[in-house]
Amino acid sequence: MKDHDPSDEAMRPDRREFMKKSGVAVAGAGVMSTTALLATPTDAWAQALTALDAGEVKTLLRMTRDVYPHDGLSDGIYMKVVEMLDAAAAKDPATDKLLSDGVKELNAAARNRFKKDYTAVAKESDRVAILQSMESTAFFQKIRGDMIAGIYNNPDVWKVLGYEGPSAHLGGYLKRGFDDIAWL
């Protein structure tokens, strides 16, 4: 997160402004405003998962953030993805093995390059370099593929990224800004 281009900030849509306009109360914004979830995940949470051990869970949590890094999303969003992976591993031994072996491979690649485990590599760009070296593996593709649904099909994420979603039950967007663009 330290590594990203600060000039990006100038481009970032103003979330608070958006949320005000779209009528999403801060209290109603779910996990993103919950202080507890903004803290680093606790060992208690990691240990509560069934198939993956605490070390694997922490590695996957770091990895999921590195694959689709959104600074505006809380850890809670990524924790949900890891919970989904854990549930899949609990159901299917092949998935369990894919994930466990993948984490081992990831750590081996990290030690090979930086002499430490993946989560201990401090710079995001260094971790990304490790991931790039594993991009074609079934493990990486499983994580990346599952994350598309795990992140972008999550209504809590829609609120943050500015997608208002279903509209039929609200009468469509006819009276809710379908043609309200004013800057052209």
Binding site: M11, P13, P69, R144
Partner: peptide, 17 residues
Amino acid sequence: PGMWGRDFTWAMDRYEN
């Protein structure tokens, strides 16, 4: 399809734009 990392999330962060 297949794209990941900050180049990708830069676009998703600007979905409403």
